[in-house]
Design a binder for these strands. Structure first.
Lengths: 212, 212
DNA sequence: TTTTCTATGTAATATATGTCACCATCCTTC
DNA sequence: GAAGGATGGTGACATATATTACATAGAAAA
């Protein structure tokens, strides 16, 4: 399977064979719901291409973006749920078209001991997810909305590779767990400050505000 | 080792022997710093008795409480750091006197394959830590300070087993990442509402506000 | 007791964010 | 082109939280 070439460097051939054999290749279109609140988790996704976003909601239905998963990343949170057949606390949506391999939880477990490279991969994945969650906590707890908004736009730029971000103010407000009016106001402020240019459903980041 | 009796039900005798042999029993007094920002992590703590709290700080030094670890819990976030000899992103402080067993990372790894019960324990621990972090995100992102304060007080009550909480307003403000004045104001409001009674360095939760 | 330090109470004020109302614009569909 | 839906702009106002300043009270130290 060509899409797996990245893993060649990571895993031994025998493991790659097993991944090909037991992993289920799945395709999702932009906007598809890959995992939803309350659903049982029976597999761990390894993203081959594209990007998906992971969200959490409160009782009232308000949602907040936790983090993105893109190529060659896995959601180990899903893994840790498999063992006890837990229901999902989060929702995953395809940010753009996504190819992923779903590894059944029985194999997850088996490979952990059979292939040291798998164990390392899983452990690094756990670590990355923790760090992402910590970054999210830091962002919400310590930063004002305008900073969070800039960070959000830059993250989108990084993931898409384009300085033109396609998103409505509604979408942004949802993912930052605030309201559209607030986001429109802050975006207009950023435009007045010369940091961005606003179009309908699009935001262009200006060059002098690249990553520092 | 008597303190380990809880683990008898969880682990096979051979593993308990290894824990006794290779784990290092450590004692910390209330307020001791168990892990600090930027220090290298080489072991995973298993808490035998007492409670420790895990904090994260921002650039300016402001801190926020992430979660507590108490008896029979482990910090798998530490584990996931061991593999790559990462520096800590968090700080851990003994909330009350703490006994813990420090498991060296070489053994962590070895036991994962050798003892299925260890693997299950570790995976459940990963899952619990994720859920705690999600709870923290939810609390900060979706709840007003007064709700977070009540939740904080109830968590302290649960951990200590006492409805009298020993804490200064300064401490609470730090752990909720706000200022003392704000906490004093909200606490006074809660007292006026008949939910708590305030004393110097102590807060008494009233019965009719037990867990619902 | 007097002094000093820590903890707490509270008013006044500033700022950030949330909410509501309403309008204008663009896009799609009929 | 008309109608309706989605998107975005903006003023007015409400509320939550942060900040500053100062007063008081209790505890500890001298």
């Amino acid at each position: 399977m060509d899409t797996l070439s990245y893993f060649d460097a990571l895993f031994e051939p025998a493991l790659i064979n097993e991944i090909n054999q037991f992993g289920e290749l799945k395709h999702f279109k932009e906007g598809d719901i890959i995992m939803d609140y309350g659903k049982y988790i029976r597999m761990m996704p390894m993203v081959i291409s594209g990007t998906l976003k992971v969200l959490k909601k409160d009782e009232t239905g308000k949602e907040i973006l936790l983090y993105y998963l893109s190529s060659n990343e896995s959601c180990s949170m899903a893994y840790s749920c498999c063992l006890e057949a837990k229901k999902s606390e989060v929702k995953a949506i395809a940010e753009e078209d996504v190819d992923l391999i779903a590894i059944p939880h029985t194999k997850l477990d088996e490979w952990l001991c059979k292939y040291p490279s798998w164990k390392n991969y899983i452990m690094r994945s756990f670590n990355l997810r923790f760090l992402e969650l910590l970054k999210t906590v830091e962002s919400i707890a310590f930063h004002k909305l305008d900073d969070r908004l800039i960070a959000y736009l830059k993250e989108k730029q990084r993931l898409s590779g384009s300085s033109v971000i396609k998103a409505s103010h509604y979408l942004i407000a949802d993912e930052l767990a605030t309201s559209r009016v607030v986001i429109s106001r802050l975006l207009k402020q950023l435009e007045n400050d010369g940091k961005i240019i606003l179009y309908r459903n699009e935001i262009k980041l200006l060059n002098d505000y690249d990553y520092s």
